[in-house]
Computed example of a mutant assay.
Amino acid sequence: MPVQDLGGLVVDLPHLDLVLTVAGELRQDLTFGRPDELPDLRLARVPVSADVPESAFVDPEQLDLVLAQLRRWCAARFGGWTPEMGKDRPLENIFALGHPKSLGALVAEPADAPSTTSALANAGAGVRVTMLDVRLDVDLAAASGAEVPQVAGHGRFVKGVIGGLAPGAHVSVRPVLDAGGRGNTWDVVRALAAAVREDQAQVVNLSIGCRTADGEPPFVLRRAVEVLGEQTLIVAAAGNRWADPAVAQRSQPTWPATLPGVVAVGAAAAEFSPQLPWVDYLAPGVDIVSTFLSDVATKEQPLATFHGFAKWSGTSFAAAHLTGAVAAALPSSGSARAALADLASTEGSGITRYRWQEV
């Protein structure tokens, strides 16, 4: 009988045995696999699968049902208390969250290499930056056949923006998304923990994000930020939105940008950038030129050929700009947070505090 993968439950590590025992009793129709543990974050991911006939329909919301059953069981027996748990959610690069009707400038266009740079050659010397993004060496042919999605060049573009502002910084890339810009929250937090523990990153750039149906933060991302946010500056893109303010998607929070402890970055003077209270800073994110794919056309620009550079817009690149600027300023400021405060108070830095007001 074929096995259908239903995803993963993420559980507070101290209560893993309790959850597995109860889950096994409540749902004997499902199989709970060997946990993958992250002791640094006190988390474990439990793979869940179902043995079903090929013609059988399996509810895609099975994990939600399992979580609801577990919470009811625990609350009934422990005076309303339930262990912290959630599910491993899908996550995308921020560009992929845009809607085709509102892409506009969010389509990458071929560009020439920048002729000059204002950054000093040693700007950011000794600073450690880690970015979580699309892998740089994606197999373009395997990614989509004859059509290469522009998101396949997202990681290269983000790294180019950071490196253009802080060429002396050491920028590590931890791939967490495939060439289509898709991944999951568990891989992201594993990479985030490794960025702090192994890379000793002073700044981590996340030009990626997800939205949830209930508007609540994914448990796994919340825990990671709570534990790691004091050890490194976590910078995240605020997300790209529909231009129509009547569309509910425009006001939905983007995680992890919306989490306390994360620096949420929007694009200055950009209609696609969210105008919401949880945005912290604005940085340049319109018509940015940076490194890109070479000798390819993209699905979005099938009649144009890219030769290593592109012009692109999005909050992904506003976040990358802020990350690069902080890295460049960090040696003289003493810390990433001090560098960010200095930049926000310096006229002409391109980085400003966002002040929300209802219109």
Results as ranks from 00 to 15, higher is better:
residue 1 M to G: 13
residue 16 L to T: 01
residue 17 D to E: 15
residue 29 D to G: 09
residue 40 D to G: 10
residue 41 L to F: 03
residue 50 A to Y: 03
residue 50 A to F: 01
residue 51 D to T: 14
residue 62 Q to R: 13
residue 70 L to T: 01
residue 70 L to A: 07
residue 72 R to V: 11
residue 74 C to Q: 12
residue 77 R to L: 00
residue 80 G to D: 00
residue 84 E to A: 15
residue 84 E to L: 15
residue 87 K to G: 07
residue 88 D to Y: 02
residue 89 R to N: 12
residue 91 L to H: 08
residue 92 E to Y: 15
residue 100 P to D: 01
residue 104 G to M: 06
residue 106 L to R: 11
residue 110 P to T: 03
residue 118 S to C: 14
residue 125 A to Q: 05
residue 127 V to F: 01
residue 127 V to I: 02
residue 129 V to S: 05
residue 131 M to Y: 09
residue 131 M to Q: 11
residue 137 D to V: 03
residue 138 V to Q: 12
residue 139 D to S: 05
residue 142 A to W: 02
residue 142 A to Q: 06
residue 144 S to N: 10
residue 144 S to C: 10
residue 150 Q to V: 02
residue 152 A to H: 04
residue 155 G to V: 02
residue 156 R to W: 11
residue 156 R to T: 06
residue 156 R to G: 13
residue 160 G to P: 08
residue 166 A to G: 06
residue 177 L to Q: 07
residue 185 T to C: 14
residue 191 A to E: 05
residue 193 A to H: 00
residue 195 A to L: 07
residue 196 V to D: 00
residue 197 R to V: 00
residue 202 Q to E: 12
residue 211 R to S: 09
residue 214 D to R: 01
residue 215 G to P: 12
residue 224 A to V: 02
residue 232 T to A: 03
residue 234 I to D: 05
residue 237 A to F: 08
residue 243 A to Y: 09
residue 244 D to T: 00
residue 247 V to Y: 05
residue 257 A to T: 02
residue 261 G to D: 03
residue 262 V to F: 00
residue 268 A to V: 05
residue 272 F to P: 03
residue 277 P to G: 10
residue 280 D to Q: 10
residue 285 G to N: 08
residue 286 V to Q: 13
residue 294 S to E: 11
residue 296 V to M: 02
residue 297 A to D: 09
residue 308 G to R: 07
residue 319 A to W: 05
residue 321 H to D: 13
residue 327 A to C: 05
residue 329 A to P: 13
residue 329 A to F: 09
residue 330 L to P: 08
residue 333 S to V: 05
residue 337 R to Q: 07
residue 338 A to L: 14
residue 339 A to E: 04
residue 352 T to V: 08
